[in-house]
């Protein structure tokens, strides 16, 4: 039972981090219609900034720079590239992001080399134990912070003019523009938010129990794609809930791999996608998705 609860807690905390990434996918998609294949390298850029600056300027300052840096990177990608596509449609935008991903990842790989850069977070390798369940402090902090961030997102989208304008533009950008909402601004805000969330997720994905910042960190955004799809492309709530689902399911599949051996080895890899396909069969627009997505 303790074992189960430990895995569950693990899965939940991991799921909340996945949620941060998946929400970034949602916001970029709803604000600019882009399937952001470069999300992983934006995440890595943020984490890299933190890791390389935490020595000289301390962790908290570095974290702030990393989050802002990733947000700025997102805004630049949108302003310089996405908005200048010869032919703006989701298909070409997605492939454009693949190109961006190649460039960013190559440069970051060159800079990081085969080092594993320490993120230098104050919680180090501490753990918290409650009733036999042991969880790394970083995960507890991550879970707490993710919940706070989601709360802030709720406040932003439900209470502030800018957030409501973003929701309006996401629902119907044409009409929103007629009301004076500037699409360039909501797009930039979306990319900035997504970049910042990715950097936050990156900091925790590079914290203990993970070793630090390595190029493979960029791949962690792939793990959030099933969560994004499962929740529906345009639902922030969906992304958060499905992040939790995927996190828990993955943790349990890995934790009980021995018992599930008849399904083949390496189950943790396929289970998120299996869940995603099964849910899509029942609900073709995901758990919380509203409209069907645009075609390529």
């Amino acid at each position: 039972m303790t074992y189960f609860l430990t895995q569950l807690a693990n899965g939940l905390s991991y799921g909340l981090i996945l949620g941060l990434i998946a929400v970034g996918f949602v916001i970029v998609f709803t604000s600019t219609g882009v399937l952001n294949f470069a999300h992983g390298s934006v995440l890595l850029s943020g984490a890299y900034l933190v890791a390389s600056l935490q020595g000289p300027i301390g962790f908290w300052a570095a974290a702030a720079v990393g989050v802002v840096g990733a947000a700025v990177l997102g805004v630049l990608i949108n302003a310089l590239l996405v908005r200048n596509l010869a032919e703006a449609n989701p298909g070409t935008a997605a492939i454009l992001m693949l190109g961006v991903d190649i460039v960013l990842l190559t440069e970051l790989t060159r800079r990081i080399g085969n080092n594993v850069l320490s993120i230098g977070a104050p919680w180090g390798a501490d753990v918290v134990s409650v009733g036999g369940i042991t969880l790394p402090t970083s995960r507890v902090v991550a879970a707490g912070l993710a919940i706070v961030v989601f709360g802030l997102l709720w406040f932003l989208f439900a209470r502030t003019g800018a957030g409501i304008a973003m929701r309006a533009a996401a629902a119907d950008s044409d009409t929103a523009a007629m009301m004076g909402v500037r699409p360039s601004r909501t797009g930039a805000a979306g990319w900035a938010l997504a970049g910042a969330l990715a950097a936050v997720a990156g900091i925790f994905l590079a914290s203990f129990p993970a070793p630090g910042v390595a190029p493979t960190l960029a791949l962690s955004s792939f793990a959030a794609i099933p969560a994004w799809v499962l929740g529906g492309f345009d639902s922030v709530v969906g992304a958060i809930v499905s992040g939790l689902i995927i996190g828990v399911v993955t943790a349990l599949a890995v934790g009980y791999e021995a018992e599930l051996h008849f399904l083949g080895r390496g189950l943790g890899e396929v289970v998120p996608y299996a869940v995603m396909i099964l849910v899509l069969l029942v609900r073709p627009s995901g758990l919380f998705g509203r409209k069907e997505a645009v075609r390529v």
Partner: peptide
């Protein structure tokens, strides 16, 4: 300011939020 054909209100936003978007400028 234009009121578009077919109303095009923001269906998932509340009445108040719809108005708030209208007043965003």
């Amino acid at each position: 300011v234009q009121v578009p054909e077919g109303r095009r209100i923001f269906r998932d936003l509340t009445v108040e939020e719809n108005l708030r978007v209208g007043g965003c400028t």
